[in-house]
Design a protein around this nucleic acid. Structure first.
Lengths: 251, 251
DNA sequence: AATTGCATTCGACAATGTCGAATGAACCCC
DNA sequence: GGGGTTCATTCGACATTGTCGAATGCAATT
């Protein structure tokens, strides 16, 4: 592992968590001399991966990340295929839909299609949610034991009073996810919001993503037709990607 | 400048341009031995800034960029303030709106509010457009001579038959932008699409962004009220940011 | 089965990044 | 308004670290 690149990435991660940091904040957090951190930050700044605040001398993440991220999203086959099916899903069910993948134990939302009712929509793409508190996460974990082990390695953080923090309870949940191809989450991450997710497979047959619909809690439970429609959407995306087997097998 | 970080950033840029590249492609492009590039790529991969394709052994940009980008966007004061005003603008005028900043001589779109007619919307946030062929770019250049010099240093690339490729003609255009606080662009970047932009200032009084409305060419020209509404939006955002002076002064 | 075109591993060398001390700038408090 | 404090920033010597070339391994293609 190249030391300075590793340190540069750590700088980006720290800025991701803290938004605005000075050189000495970073130096303290990384336990390095300020001059060393300064060199790293200046190298990142030259590529606009970080930027200096206009007033004050703290540093923030830079605009180049937006372009990189946008190109990443465009290269993702799953996303390209999912967009059409998700739009149909949202239009027909009336619920917002999300597509998520795993990132360092959390769920990263890589596409979002809003409710068709024209309400003001916050862009949710890029948001990340702890896996154990999201329907998408439960699907990804239930079908990938490697990711699941990572999550079980640490205590499950409580986000709301309904978050599942007991490992055994979560593991039991996975059994039914594998059996029914559906994961539920009821106000486990955000009060007032529930979600339901289904697995998406790529051409290797592995579960690489999950689609979900997001439901205001006062509209739960949803009818059987909506559930069928969600699984259908997941299967359509998977088929587009050339999955060799459906339903998917746990890995 | 730290060499290995510089090289790592170059790797990200190459992947941004080419989507999928193998180690030897990267090595050739950077004129470095493959083993050197391999080390760099593996360091980036450990942080998921790049990822390896599931089939084949080429590399692509990684998911961590999405989260970083999303945090960057959230930290941007301009964007946070602009979102509400832009939504109102789009709803009242019926046109899609964009917010853009400068990035390496191009315009980077940092927010997009779709047409209110419910048509399927491609997310445009993250897109980048050559400054000289966009209304947003013309605003940013007209009010920032440093950026303008950068752009004039290279020949102006022709994107459509209507792109302004003559430096003098573009400079003349800037005069009226500074005077009227409005820049126009008619099919200069994309056939069938025109746009109109106005400057946004921050608390230092500098023009740091521009808002635009995007107009299908068959709906041009737009009426006077729409233009006024656009400038008003720009002023409202600027006022929210605490600009000390309006109209802005060229820098 | 042999060959080609890759990615990947390894170890020696020296170029490179690192660190500590010195400088400079900005801010705050008295 | 001046002295003090807290930062970011610059600089140069040192040795740690990244770099490179050669060797290996893997897989696809013929």
């Amino acid at each position: 592992m190249i030391q300075s690149i590793d340190r540069a990435a750590k700088v980006l991660n720290l800025l991701q968590g803290a938004r605005h940091l000075g050189i000495s904040d970073l130096a303290a957090a990384m336990e390095l001399p300020p001059s060393t951190v300064h060199g790293i930050v200046k190298a990142l700044q030259a590529h606009k991966l970080v930027a200096q605040e206009r007033i004050g001398n703290r540093y923030v993440l830079g605009p180049a990340l937006v372009k990189l991220s946008s190109v990443y999203l465009d290269t993702l086959d799953v996303r390209a295929r999912a967009i059409r099916w998700m739009h149909d899903l949202s239009r027909e069910t009336g619920f917002a839909s999300r597509l998520g993948v795993e990132l360092f134990g959390d769920v990263l939302v890589i596409h979002h299609d809003g409710r068709p009712d024209g309400s003001e929509q916050m862009p949710e793409t890029g948001a990340s949610i702890p896996s154990h508190a999201s329907a998408i996460g439960k699907v990804l974990l239930a079908f990938n034991s490697e990711h699941a082990d990572d999550v079980f390695a640490n205590p499950l953080r409580e986000l709301t009073g309904y978050t599942i923090t007991d490992a055994q309870e979560l593991a039991d949940d996975f059994m039914s996810v594998r059996k029914n191809l559906i994961a539920y989450e009821n106000e486990e991450a955000v009060i007032g919001e529930s979600s339901i997710a289904a697995p998406v497979c790529d051409s290797t047959g592995d579960v690489v993503a999950a689609v979900a619909i997001v439901i205001p809690s006062n509209e739960t439970p949803v009818d059987e037709a909506t559930l069928t429609r969600l699984i259908e959407t997941a299967r359509n995306i998977s088929r587009d990607l050339g999955t060799p087997s459906w339903p998917p097998t746990p890995n």
